[in-house]
Amino acid sequence: MSGFARHRRSRLIIANFTGFEADLLRSLASQLVELLRNEAAVPSDDRDPFEAMMDFSGPTTEPEDPVLARLFPTAYPDDEEAASEFRRFTEGALRDGKATAAVTIIETLEEAGLPPELTEDGLMIDVELDEPTAEIWLRSFTDVRLALASRLGVEDGDDDVWAALPDEDPRAQAHDIYEWVGYLQETLVEALTTD
């Protein structure tokens, strides 16, 4: 995989993934969707649309899961009441937006030819994104990286710690995935800003 680039003629943003890479991205996006939708903060989808739109009964406390706490930080750390009210009015919609963005990655990969079960060696997936879809992917990459960083305990300036881990250490492998998603994110930003 060479990252994202802007096609000279069509102006679409393109990338080529091996079947393994595409399946890994689908898995990461799926895990993010599951995390976002499995906690009680998400309202039921069977409500009246107007009622759902006017519902401000979202969560009022910080999520217990460290990944969710990182994805939805406290807006007013020095004012518990204001933080609670802000979270109540915003977190549900933010969760839905993040889940929808991750689903966009899954759907785009599957529309590009990624089968439900990856069984074929040598499969290549060519992805073409218009700018709005590329921006959705970019936001979701940020969420995936934050989730991985939270689970791994990645901190600024700790590159030497990760480099010292043996290759067979599962944490080193997970950190490699974190770095890879960062690379994808970086090339996507470059492609979006290229005229």
Rank of each mutant, 00 (worst) to 15 (best):
T60Q: 13
A83D: 15
R70E: 14
I177K: 00
E64V: 02
A29F: 02
D45Y: 03
A5E: 14
L138V: 01
R151T: 09
L148F: 03
L32P: 01
Y183W: 11
M1Q: 07
A172W: 00
E21P: 05
L192W: 12
A82S: 13
D45N: 06
A163C: 01
S150E: 14
A93T: 09
S30C: 06
S57N: 14
G19V: 09
L165E: 09
D46G: 00
F17L: 12
T194L: 12
T104G: 05
S150H: 10
V33N: 05
W180V: 10
S44G: 06
V127A: 07
I125D: 12
V67D: 11
A102Y: 09
R171P: 07
L68C: 05
V42R: 10
A164E: 15
R87N: 10
T142R: 04
E51P: 00
E111D: 15
D96N: 07
A52T: 08
A83K: 00
R47L: 14
R139T: 03
R145C: 07
L36S: 08
I14F: 12
T100D: 15
Y183D: 15
I13H: 02
T108N: 07
P166W: 06
P49Y: 10
P116G: 10
E131S: 13
M54C: 13
A147G: 10
S27P: 03
Y183E: 13
E110D: 05
F86R: 08
A174V: 06
P66I: 02
P49K: 05
E117W: 10
D143F: 06
T61R: 13
G153H: 04
F141G: 07
S2P: 11
P49M: 12
S150W: 11
P166R: 05
G122T: 07
S27Q: 13
A102G: 03
T194K: 12
P132Q: 04
R70W: 04
G122M: 03
R6M: 13
T142M: 02
A102N: 05
L12D: 15
D169M: 03
A112M: 07
E85I: 11
L36I: 02
L192A: 11
H175S: 02
A102S: 12
P77G: 14
L25M: 15
D160P: 00
P59G: 14
A112H: 04
L148D: 10
T187E: 13
F20K: 11
F141M: 04
L71H: 02
E111V: 01
T90E: 11
R70N: 13
Y76P: 09
E64P: 01
E111G: 01
A149M: 06
P132E: 08
V33D: 08
A69V: 01
R47E: 15
K98H: 09
A112I: 03
F17V: 01
T74K: 11
G58P: 08
L25A: 10
N16E: 15
A41K: 01
I13F: 00
I105A: 04
A149E: 14
G3P: 07
M124Q: 14
E186C: 06
E131M: 09
A83R: 01
A83Y: 07
F89R: 11
T18L: 04
I136K: 02
P170D: 11
E51W: 07
E155L: 10
R11Q: 15
G113Q: 02
V189C: 06
E135C: 06
R37T: 14
E51G: 08
Y76H: 15
G97M: 13
H7K: 05
R26G: 04
T104C: 13
L12Q: 14
S140A: 12
T187D: 14
R88A: 15
V144P: 02
L146S: 08
